[in-house]
Write a protein that binds this DNA or RNA. Structure first.
Lengths: 206, 206
DNA sequence: TATTTATCCTACCAACCGGTAGGTAGACAC
DNA sequence: GTGTCTACCTACCGGTTGGTAGGATAAATA
C-alpha cells in the first residue's frame, strides 16, 4: 500500500477533502439539512463517487464525528502534560478548549448539534466528546482541593457551568456578529474571555 | 422516522394542537428533520388538513417561533416588576429564566436550534429572543453599579457567560441523564443551580 | 503484456418531500 | 330549500432524497 506521491500538492486526498466539506455542511445545516450531493459538489465529484469512499450518509457523518473526537482527545493530552501545578494545568486545559473553539467553530457547532439531534448516541459513554475532558478536569480539581489550592465546591457543577458558558458563547458568535457593531463585537470577544478567566479564579483558586 | 407522541389535550382546538406537536417535533428533529406529515399524524389529521391551518411548513415553523417569543417576553416583564431592589430583580429574572428552561426545555432547544440553523434570521435585531433579556439586564446591572450595589465589570460579557452556562446545561440534560446514575443526575441538577447562584453572587454582588 | 484495483462516471430507482386540486360533510344564514 | 363557510378528506404532482448497477479510465501489480 505504499503511496508514490508524484505531486507534493498542499491539497489533500479526496477522502480527506470529503470529510472536510462534510464537516462544514453538517455543522451549518445539520444531518437532515445536508444532502450528500451537495457535499460531493463541494469536492467536485459526483454523488456515487462520494459513496465509493463512504458507503452511506450515516457512515460519512460518523466518520466526521470520529475525526473530531480523536483530534479533541489528543489536544487534551497535550494540554494536560504541560505543567504539574494544578492551577496552571486548569488554565492550560481551559486554554486548549478555548483555542479549539476559536479555531474550529465548525466542530464545536457540530458536536452541539449531535447532542441536540441524538442525545442517546451522543451519550454512549465512551464516545461522548466531553467525557474525557470532564473526567480529567474533575480529577484535577479534586487533587487541587486536597492540596489546598482550590476552594471546596462540586467540581462537576462548576465545570459544567464554565464549559457551558464558553461553548454557548462560541455557537452564538455568528448571531452576535450580526447584532453588534464590528468594534463592539471585537471588544466583547476579549471581555468574555477575560470575564470567564476571572470567574474561574474568583470561584476556584485560593 | 419515529412516530411522534400524539398530543392528547382534548380541550385545545386543532390549530393549537398542531402548534404544540410542531414545537415538539421541530425541537427534537430540527426543521429539515421534521416532516409536516409526521406533525399531522401526531394530531390525527392528514397533511392537507394541516396545510389548511398553516399554509406552508415555513409558516408553521414561524408560528411556533413566534408563540415562544411572545410567551418569553411576557414572562420577562412579570419578573422585572417583582421588585425594586437591583439584587432581587437580578435574581428574579434569572429565576424566571431558569423556570422557563425547566418547564419548557423544548422551547429552549428549539431557539438554540434556530440560532444554529439561521443565525442571520435569529439575529434580526427585533426578534432575537435573547435581545430583550440582555437589554434589560445590562440596564439593570449598570443601575446597580451606579448605586454601588454591584461590582464593576462588563455587564454583557458577564451576562452572556451566566446565561450561556444555564442554557447549555439545559440542552445537555438529555445527554447527561443517560450518562449519570439517576441519583447523581438529580444531585447535579441541584448543584448546578446552586453553583450558578454562587457565581453570580460572588462576582456581581458587593 | 496482462490483470487487478482504485477511482470516478452516467443512468437509474423507490421512497419521501412539500404542496395542490378537487371534492365531501356538517354548521349556520336566509 | 339554497348558498356559503370551515374543516377535513383522497388522489396526485414535480422535485429531491439516499442509494444501486454497471461501465470507463488509468495506474499499480504480476
Amino acid at each position: 500500500m505504499t503511496k508514490l506521491k508524484s505531486v507534493k500538492t498542499p491539497e489533500l486526498d479526496t477522502k480527506s477533502r470529503i470529510l472536510q466539506a462534510a464537516l462544514e455542511a453538517f455543522s451549518q445545516s445539520g444531518f437532515y439539512g445536508t444532502s450528500i450531493n451537495s457535499v460531493a459538489e463541494a469536492v467536485n465529484i459526483k454523488k456515487p463517487s462520494l459513496l465509493h469512499h463512504f458507503s452511506s450518509k450515516e457512515k460519512l457523518y460518523g466518520a466526521v464525528l470520529e475525526s473530531i473526537s480523536t483530534r479533541l482527545l489528543s489536544e487534551l493530552e497535550a494540554a494536560m502534560d504541560s505543567s504539574e501545578n494544578e492551577k496552571e494545568q486548569m488554565l492550560s486545559v481551559m486554554d486548549s478548549f478555548y483555542r479549539w473553539n476559536k479555531e474550529c467553530p465548525n466542530e464545536t457547532v457540530l458536536l452541539l448539534r449531535e447532542m441536540l439531534d441524538n442525545p442517546q448516541r451522543a451519550a454512549t459513554a465512551h464516545n461522548w466528546y466531553l467525557a474525557p475532558w470532564l473526567e480529567r478536569l474533575v480529577e484535577l480539581i479534586r487533587r487541587g482541593q486536597q492540596n489546598g489550592r482550590f476552594h471546596e465546591l462540586e467540581p462537576m457543577a462548576f465545570l459544567y457551568n464554565i464549559i457551558g458558558a464558553q461553548h454557548y458563547f462560541v455557537v452564538s458568535l455568528p448571531t452576535l456578529k450580526q447584532i453588534l457593531r464590528a468594534s463592539d463585537f471585537k471588544a466583547l470577544l476579549k471581555q468574555q474571555r477575560q470575564e470567564l478567566k476571572t470567574l474561574i479564579e474568583l470561584r476556584l483558586f485560593k
